[in-house]
Amino acid sequence: MLHIINRSPLSDIALESCLNTATGGDILLIEDAVYAATSGNAFEGKLRAAMGRFKISVLRPDLEARGLSDRVVEGAALVDYAGFVELVAANKTCQSWL
């Protein structure tokens, strides 16, 4: 399953809930959720700890827009819009955590 998150983990528990609930699969961070995958943010440890179970991708345009493309945590993959589509196509189901 692909999990899509669009809220910063520092103001919304969607990502944390997803990590605690889902059994594994792909996670795509978009919009404000890209902050989760930047080095030094308070959620970094939890994200890193989840990397064994989940494959983490980050939408590059959202990261660039926020001036953070040079600070992605190691192990997170950067994808563009085409990569977004590929992730959706590669998964049987998709859950957007609002």
Binding site: M1, T23, T93, Q95, L98
Partner: peptide, 10 residues
Amino acid sequence: MDEQDVILSF
């Protein structure tokens, strides 16, 4: 969740 065909989140 893994058993579902469609998941809608609100």
